[in-house]
Design a binder for these strands. Structure first.
Lengths: 153, 153
DNA sequence: TGATGGCTTGATATTTTATAACATACAGGG
DNA sequence: CCCTGTATGTTATAAAATATCAAGCCATCA
């Protein structure tokens, strides 16, 4: 996705609109702060850290404190609008917010872009692996590092 | 593994001995510090944090500084004697240190024990997923959260 | 022997990431 | 309007990790 030229502002707009709609359905509160944080996360092509969000959020205005950002991010992750990339201590917008799910990612070690994989088959394999090891399945993180098509060209 | 009663000191001894041997083969230096840190990591049944290692390492003696621990852990991870669990900012001893590999884990959300999965099939699926998404494969982390057999009983 | 160079560890300081705890604001139902 | 619960603000601190420079160790080779 991110390796094509595209009008990223459209991505951002779309993400904000669907989040809005989903929150209405779920009767959760898509407050201005949460909206703004989601916008900032989406506005960056790459995974963004909480403190980067904090800096951007603070531009112009009085500096906000870390809990403000972390709480908003927690909400967005909880709702499935944003995923956390553990190996980078960072966050990315979810490409399919309508269905709550765990994210599985490819991370390019050259350009830092990430690709979310939404393949059901992969998910099945993982759930199966859990079962085979005698575990009930709750959730999983899968982060694969490699070099994307673009960067290898 | 960890859900059976067993003489854990044997695990620790075995781990130390194979690390020793592997380092001789690779001509890398298994120094007293590195040995001690590996011992501490293995001595805990559950994932251990760098600062827990630091505290244990400091007992009695003058307190060591964080870089001392992180450098030793870096070495051990590099050599494949220890894996890092990203979702817990913690480390565990590798169950198969002879073959350098990425660890894939089950993590019990009740008892915190982890099980390392060494299934080749799982690894293949992951490498394939990378390929299908146009990425070259470098490495991956897979951490599945669930409840282990023991804890569900 | 003892000078050299490379790796390892020590030591100090700081950065980065995240949360605890308590106060204030604000929206919606009674 | 008041009460209640959720959200945000504020201050402080905890937890995790790294940058930087100094000192020690040890193999080797002139």
């Amino acid at each position: 996705m991110l390796n094509n030229k595209h009008d990223h502002s459209v991505c951002v707009e779309t993400a904000l609109e669907s989040a809005q709609k989903i929150c209405e359905e779920r009767e959760t509160r898509f407050t201005p702060l949460r909206r703004r944080v989601l916008e900032l996360v989406w506005s960056k092509h790459e995974p963004i850290t909480a403190y980067e969000v904090l800096d951007m959020l603070s531009e112009g205005k009085k500096r906000v404190a870390p809990p403000t950002v972390y709480r908003a991010l927690d909400f967005l992750v909880e709702e499935g609008f944003v995923h956390r990339i553990e190996s980078l201590n960072s966050f990315v917008g979810c490409s399919d917010p309508a269905h709550k799910h765990q994210g599985h990612f490819m991370i390019c070690t050259k350009c830092s872009n990430v690709t979310e994989m939404n393949e059901q088959s992969l998910h099945n394999v993982i759930e199966n692996a859990a079962k085979e090891n005698g575990y009930s399945y709750e959730n999983s993180i899968l982060e694969i590092a490699g070099v994307c098509e673009n960067c290898r060209a």
